[in-house]
């Protein structure tokens, strides 16, 4: 099996920008190395012969875990908004957004 392409510095910069993380050059180097190590470890699975093994969606062989449609008590609003960076009209106040929601 072909060796998976190793994670690049550009990949990490791209993912960081999607998460709106500002990384310094040093941090980019560090995370590129660290994340590549993690991915290499996960890639070890590729060395196994998995022909005939069905893909699984979850570590546990469990399906249909559900709850009844019954209302529960919500959090107190004052408590909720105390955790907000800023508040106006009982809403979370956040920096302006460019563009609309995806």
């Amino acid at each position: 099996m072909a060796e998976p392409a190793r994670l690049t510095r550009e990949d990490v910069a791209h993912v960081a920008s999607l998460a709106r993380l500002a990384l310094s050059d040093d941090e980019l180097d560090t995370f590129t190395w660290q994340l590549a190590e993690v991915l290499d470890h996960a890639a070890d699975v590729s060395s196994l012969d998995l022909d005939g093994v069905a893909p699984t969606a979850h570590a546990m062989a469990v399906t249909n875990v559900m709850r009844l449609d019954e209302p529960q008590v919500c959090l107190d609003r004052d408590e909720v908004l105390a955790a907000a960076p800023d508040v106006e009209d009982y809403r979370f106040k956040v920096p302006r957004i460019l563009g609309e929601a995806p």
């Binding site: 709850r67 019954e70 209302p71 919500c74 609003r77 908004l81 009209d89 809403r91």
Partner: peptide
């Protein structure tokens, strides 16, 4: 989650 699904309630009251 068990928060009410309701339209038009006071902001941030149906949250957990």
């Amino acid at each position: 989650c068990g928060c009410p699904n309701a339209f038009g309630d006071e902001p941030n009251t149906n949250v957990c």
